[in-house]
Amino acid sequence: MLSPSHPPPVRRIATAALIAGCLLATLPACGGGTEAKSKLTIFAASSLTESFDQLERAYEKEHPGVDIVISYGSSTELADQITQGAPADVIATADANSIGTVDDAGLLDGAPQQFTSNTLAIVTPADNPAAVASIDDLNDVDFVTCDPSAPCGAAASSFLKKAGISAAPVSLEADVKSVLSKVTLGEADAGIVYVTDSVAAGEKVTTVAIPADLNVVNPYFLGVVKASDAPDLAGDWIALVMSQVGHRVLADAGFGVQ
């Protein structure tokens, strides 16, 4: 009875008029874009989010008639979805194995091409409470990595082996974003993530570099899916990623480019 759930009639009429006005106002805009846009669907590893979002804008400026839809996810999941018949034109993965399963299933047009690579970095909470300064400090703190079943975890575990660090992580997270959130929340003293994630996290973390000779390089591959309706547009996308513009965007995000 006390709840103001029924606005007075005058206000309701005003709202209705407002909504109608808005609808009318958008109509010309809707009518304007009569020619159907062609769609390009890209499946990409989550770590590519910032770079591919930027390249999407560049591509759509060059191809005004094309609407790009990018679905980001874990490389293994994306590859699974394509082998199960999900409609994608391009797939870009953070490892060789996932795109390899798509290729092995005969679903790729040509061989997968490597377009960039990612390396590992140690991140700590911004104030670095455990004073992690070098890789050896990992032996004395609570750190987290990805689970070895994910590419970032496989890379982390081979780095730990290479560096001769005997301490085990306190948790093996399902993906790299979970590692990052455990660190930014201060639950872990340190985490092993991709350099690109440490760049994207900005001031929320303090980054401790891993020496190049001990680091692990994760190659990134992409390819056109055979069932694509728009192989030409897909080819243009790959050309953009491989171009100087593409390389600059990737390098800004922390990726390694040949």
Binding site: V144, D147, S149, A150, P169, V170, L172, A174
Partner: peptide, 21 residues
């Protein structure tokens, strides 16, 4: 609780991770 074998890796987490590999 995170995920570590023997400490915090419960059956549903084991299943989820096995799905990847």
């Amino acid at each position: 609780a995170g995920n570590f074998p023997g400490t915090t890796r419960t059956m549903p987490i084991e299943v989820y991770l096995a799905l990847n590999s």
